[in-house]
Structures are given as C-alpha cells and as structure tokens.
Amino acid sequence: MIVADRKPLKEILEMLKGYNRILVVGCKGCVSVCNVGGSKEVGILASILKIAGKKNGLNLKVDEKTLERQCDPEYVDLLKDMVDDYDVILSMACGVGPQFLSERYPESRCLPAVNTTFFGGAVQHGVWSERCAGCGTCVIHFFDGMCPIARCSKSLLNGPCGGSADGKCEISKDVDCIWDMIVRKKMEQGRLDDLLKFMPAKDWTTARDGGPRKSVREELVQ
C-alpha cells in the first residue's frame, strides 16, 4: 500500500488560516489501511480542527466525508454537490488525492493533510516499512524477493557496501541492511553464485528519472 503520515497539526492549521468552512475528505484505500486517512482519522482530525477553532474563538464549519478512493474520477465526482459549500477541501488521501480533487474542482482550494511516504506494508500493528521504490523495472527476482533499490540506503545492485555491520545499515541501527539479508538467504539456500555475477548499471528511464510516468492499457482505453 501507499503509506503516509499525518502532517504536523501546526502545519495543517497554518495552511487552513483564513478558511472557516472546511471539508475533510478521507479515502478508504491505502491510507485507511495504514490508519492515517480513513473515516476514523477524518473524524479525529475534524474534531481537532473544531477544538482549535473554538480555542481561537472561531466558529468553524468542519464536515467529514470519506470516499471509496480519491484516485478514481467516479468517486471524486461524488463531491460535486458539496464542494461549493466549503472554502477549502482538506484531503487525507495520499498525494494523489488532493491533485485529483484539484483537477476535478479547479475552483476549490484542495490541500493535503498527510505526507505521503512510501510503498510498504505493516510489519507489525502500527509499524509500516518500505518495500518498493516504484522504479518501473522490478529486479527482486535476482535477490530472492528482496529489493535493494528500495531497501538499500544506496540502492546498490552489487552490495553490500563496507558500512554493513551486524545486519544493520550504516545510516542507523534501526535500519536493516537488506544486502546482509540477501547474502544470508543466498548462502542458506546454496545460491551464492547468483551474487557473484556483475549486475550492470540500472536503466532508470522507467523510474521517476525518466520524467512523469503514465501507464496506458490499450485494451481498456475507451
């Protein structure tokens, strides 16, 4: 899923300065699963905004709405009869949400309430960890299901570097060295030879480096 964190309240409040009618819009997709932008978190943020408003003597109108997704026009469309009643739409979806809202409702101010961080999964309740960098050319089959592009701090294809110690990355003892994990798994499974092969330089054209990306599936295009 796409993982996000709620922006610091101070930043959100700063963004909302001057707006009295606020629609907080959640998303039932990834951000619900990572407990940052689903209906529950929308309720919490709305309550927080109302508390902040009352404290500052403002009678804010803060309403809540959580869409199935914010990354599909048909769901974004569902707000069409509402948006005019608000000064600002605060999206709790990933970075896609506020942009789709802005595109659909160009007259409205659409702002982000979360910082979108990475593609990952829950490694334990309340803890999410990065797994994919969306580079556009998957290489994990070379590395027994582990991605050095996303999970090595230096994205090394011929690691591990000299900073790997006790299974941890040189940048922090809280970060696992993915290359340590790759090497150990290959050794356990008797396939170390795989790692003796030189991995040539990656073609980054499919990654963000190749410019903004688009995926077209001709059989679906109408």
């Binding site: 230096k154 090394l156 900073g163 040189e170 330089a201």
Partner: peptide, 20 residues
Amino acid sequence: HQRFGNHPQSKNVYDIDSMQ
C-alpha cells in the same frame, strides 16, 4: 551515506554503484 555528513538534507544520486 549523506545522513551523517554536514548536509544530511541533500538528495543522493547512486545512479550507479562502486562495482559499476
């Protein structure tokens, strides 16, 4: 890694690695 240098805010490159 730049994390412990004097510009930890920087973007790193690592287009290619030392082997490459």
